[in-house]
Design a protein around this nucleic acid. Structure first.
Lengths: 249, 249
DNA sequence: CGCCCCCTTGAGGGTGGTCAACTTCTGTGG
DNA sequence: CCACAGAAGTTGACCACCCTCAAGGGGGCG
């Protein structure tokens, strides 16, 4: 630790950390989906001062790990992440996939340690929001405070949706729901809602939905065969959105 | 209905709302499990001023309903609640059961409306925390603020546990986990951890665990037959905690 | 080119759902 | 107090869905 004082910080990090462009929320195309959404300009500028940039993460690199102390929240800037928890016996359960504009790390609020791990599915960038500064700012800016609670509420709602999915749906309904929700989220980001690439493995989808990867394969093949989707490795085209919705009911 | 207009409001309700004793958190045996946990005395007194008492709820009475506007959070004082969400097709999914000291209503933070319903499983009392006043107080008392976030984090963690349970466990493992968790929670409340009454129906348990009530019956009968538990209608005795833990692994 | 991982496809079996009948308990009214 | 209806819970028979296990295809990368 003490040695760090004498070693120059790697240049890239310095660039990433202080590049003024990188930290400007005002210019970020995701600002309407992100935490500071709706803040007046002066307060947005305050907010920008606490945002730190991290070096981009490569595929399969951890953003944080379960039980690690939580110092910051993170927002996906580009790329995507998978978050998951280990049960006592070491089995993984994928909790969710995170796309640009989405916040990660809330589950650490209870004890100050992450209760899940988060791993990059592809080369990805995040904005880091140091908790100490974020908390201070929340006290100064009431609307940021309520925005925080709103995003937390969204996290809870998304968990509830997953619970609903896992508890009462057949494998086919789960698969169709998964595709529809991805489509919806990509659409909200300004991408096509009928064609997108899955950034996660079949195994990840299976684990998320509480089924096996063989079942995922079979169901995707079936939907493909019926012409409802066209799937080629990770590339998905939705040909008939309504049919998917019928499956979900 | 119209006749009710001429009947004086039951005295009890009036008493409940203004009884000064009822609102004293300092004297509440649940204070260590509740939102104001850890607040210094002066701030606890501030907190007490915003707590409202509601008339007790009877079995099957709604505390709040999905899509209803959220004005307050609630803490269970006595009794128990079941919270659940409706999916588009009208099917219910039970999200959780709430015991004394536990907070309900967080899921409304996103849009200001409840995304779940909550119903009393038996005659139950709650403390009501009006959101407008709670928010103001959070700004005045930073430790209350962090306590809020901590309880929110707990809610998220509990959702994650349910996701883990629903996604990757056999019916038997689910059942054993359910019993162990109830035992643990009753114990934290100062009750016996080996004997307690289920306040919910078999159907509620089944729905919560994503299985059928027939399966719940069969599994409870099996555990009973093996001597691991003794079950008589809603009364449960855990005879062999370790065996349950082995089932869960 | 060859290895490894990801994905696909097939065959067979078990878990848990569905349907149905029956028992037990609760609440209501005569 | 009993009769009755309806809800809650139990138990059994059957079988479908999805998991397990296994083998084979295909793309990416060194």
């Amino acid at each position: 630790m003490a040695a760090d004082d004498f070693i120059p910080i790697p240049k890239m990090t310095v660039t990433m950390d202080y590049d003024p462009y990188e930290t400007l929320c005002q210019d970020c195309r995701l600002v309407e989906l992100c935490l500071p959404y709706g803040l007046p300009k002066t307060e947005l500028e305050q907010f920008e001062t606490i945002v730190k940039n991290k070096a981009p993460l490569l595929t399969d690199q951890y953003l944080y790990q379960q039980d690690e102390k939580c110092q910051s929240l993170f927002v996906v800037k580009t790329g995507s992440f998978r978050s998951f928890i280990y049960s006592e016996d070491g089995a993984e359960q994928t909790i969710g996939f995170y796309l640009p504009g989405e916040l990660m790390g809330f589950d650490a609020f209870q004890h100050g340690r992450f209760t899940s791990s988060s791993i990059a599915l592809e080369t990805s960038k995040v904005c880091e929001l140091p908790l100490s500064q974020l908390n201070k700012l929340c006290r100064l800016i009431p609307s940021l405070q309520s925005q925080m609670l709103r995003v937390l509420g969204k996290e809870i709602e998304s968990d509830h949706n997953l619970i609903l999915l896992l508890g009462h749906r057949s494998a086919k309904e789960k698969m169709a729901t998964f595709l529809l929700r991805l489509s919806h989220r990509y659409n909200a980001l300004g991408f096509s809602k009928t064609e997108f690439n899955l950034t996660m493995k079949r195994q990840d989808i299976a684990n998320f939905l509480g089924i096996t990867n063989e079942t995922v394969s079979r169901l995707l093949a079936e939907l493909n065969h019926q012409g409802i989707i066209t799937i080629n490795r990770r590339n998905v085209k939705i040909n008939n959105m309504d049919s998917l919705k019928v499956i979900v009911e």
